[in-house]
Design a protein around this nucleic acid. Structure first.
Lengths: 334, 334
DNA sequence: AAGGATTTGGCAAACGTTTGCCAATTTCTT
DNA sequence: AAGAAATTGGCAAACGTTTGCCAAATCCTT
């Protein structure tokens, strides 16, 4: 049914070897033979069978993109930027959704989830240990996305969470807020959360403010932001500025303030983290830290491609840029 | 390096055939042999090589999910529901982003985008002709998602756009609005847009209102909703109710009203379509038509699996349910 | 013009599975 | 207890590619 390399060879009057050369090592074949074979390929619509090729070369062309949930805007944004980068290298994105489940995260690292195996993995892990990762990185190409710290031997690209949080918090302080809350602390002592917290604390202390007055522990969802903001606003001395560790949280939190009729940013200001599209159109629009997603996508794919091509040096830790985008939710109170 | 079926056979003291049987046709092998072989498989960590298998069976276990952009929340929501359904059948989701490009949509249908080929395709096409689809459906399993009409020979699952739009519009009418706009008309005469438009028109005419007074032509984005809403509000007789053909549009449009200081829903009400998560947390929260995404995911994967298993009957057109969710943006004006 | 260097292309093995065909073994029937 | 029926498992071919090893052909150098 399908056209094979053999069919092409027969029609073109060359050997299979030559057909393969035309496809894979065009330099190794004379220009007029090449042209003739290529013509036959086009005419017959020959496409190399990926399985036969994969069987032989041990390459699949598949990259796993491992995320907790795909409908978290930050991850779908990232996926969107990743796809063209991968495409350019003839790689295909396979989404693996772990639901934040550690065993599922681990399963992906071991030989692929169900039936496919991957040339490489782009990992947004949440619940793995450094050991898990190191072991997996020894076996297959992996690039880590995000700030979680998993040891020095694996490639990683992330923004500097400490500095970004510092900038965001400083912005709130400079706009005249004094009772500033941080929303997003979690139980883990390292990683994303810890960095953002550290940056927040540093900025607050530098300004002589108490960083722990309002610190609250939450999930990274809108629902959770809504609930814990309500709890804070129930206090006799509610905050007048809130730095949320991601935009989802911030959108939920803003809604809590809105439900109570507070005016934003006059009575209370908000800054988020991630710059998802919703934030731009929120009412009021949300100030946020905008990581350079395009750069993250580009560099992570580059590094992964290098690993796939055989690079086996030590892990590289790349910093992606970020930018504080000031919008309505934290416009200076006049 | 990797463990092969042969290694397993050798260790277990059986033939390769038996190993294969244990993996694929467990009924065909004696229970105590099976147990023994299975133990060896587990111990050695044997995983069938997907390429060898694919080469032999012509199955990949890969399903292409073809969408215009993955960061459109409706599609990432859907992908999220799809993944567990596919997982259950040992299928893996591959995201193919077409950027609404017709040639790219077509390319996916022909033998796979770059290097992978798929067992089946879940297609959200925008710019293909019925001919394209029919031709592709003859070659490989395809299920269409969404209301675009591509002829009777291909499986499809979608909500009844006409009825849903009718319900949404009627809701606006019953809440006392009379100057009702529809946002989302496009140049194409068939498909999603046409259905929603038809439902809107029917509801308006039934109530004796002019459906075409405010009808505006737009893209399905927030930006576009924002702009065209502003244009409408510039008119001397601005609308007091708006039915938007999707939530993104509605969120943009609401923001336009908000920028002008209009109070929602007192002065102007909004209803969207899709029920993306943002809508629930918008300020005010957005009323919308909520398609039963879980059902869409379930049925489309079911039908695709049937096609893959060899079903070759005529195309089936399945209706997924929907629900009008009334939120703050269209709470009845008192 | 002859020898050497380079290019070109053929042959065939290998990748790891599934599966048709059979033979051997076990179980059931009468 | 003997023959028929069912179950189990072995052998080996096939899937479509890539690639090491060579031989043939072409080109250059002196």
């Amino acid at each position: 049914m399908a056209v094979t390399a053999r069919d092409v060879a027969k029609v073109a009057g060359v050997s299979q070897r030559t057909v393969s050369n035309v496809v894979n090592l065009p330099d190794r074949v004379g220009s007029e033979t090449r042209k003739r074979v290529q013509a036959v390929i086009d005419e017959l619509g020959y496409r190399p069978n990926p399985h036969a090729r994969g069987l032989r070369t041990r390459r699949t062309g598949l990259i796993a993109f491992v995320v907790p949930e795909l409908d978290i805007p930050y991850f779908s944004d990232l996926a969107r930027s990743l796809i063209p980068e991968l495409d350019q290298r003839s790689l295909t994105l396979v989404v693996d959704q772990t639901s934040g489940d550690a065993s599922r995260e681990r399963a992906v690292l071991r030989g692929g989830s169900v039936s496919a195996t991957f040339d490489g993995v782009l990992l947004n892990a949440l619940n793995l240990t450094a050991g898990d990762i190191e072991a997996a990185a020894a076996t297959q190409p992996i690039v880590l996305l995000g700030e979680e710290d998993y040891g020095p031997s694996v490639d990683q690209v992330a923004v500097d969470g400490v500095e970004a949080a510092f900038v965001a918090t400083t912005h709130l302080i400079e706009s005249g807020r004094t009772r500033i809350a941080a929303l997003g602390r979690q139980s883990r002592e390292a990683g994303t959360t810890a960095q953002r917290e550290a940056g927040f604390v540093a900025a607050m202390e530098q300004a002589g403010l108490d960083p722990f007055r309002y610190m609250s522990r939450v999930e990274y969802t809108r629902e959770s932001g809504l609930r814990s903001m309500h709890a804070m606003l129930d206090r006799p001395d509610p905050p007048d500025g809130v730095f949320c560790f991601n935009d989802l949280l911030a959108l939920g939190a803003m809604r809590a303030a809105w439900e109570r009729g507070l005016s934003i940013p006059q009575q209370i200001a908000f800054v988020g983290f991630d710059d998802i599209e919703d934030s731009r159109y929120a009412m009021p629009s949300l100030s946020t830290i905008a990581p350079d997603k395009a750069a993250i996508a580009r560099r992570s794919v580059e590094m992964l491609a290098e690993r796939i091509a055989g690079y086996t040096g030590p892990g590289r830790r790349e910093r992606a840029g970020f930018e504080l985008v000031v919008r309505e939710s934290s416009a200076p109170a006049r």
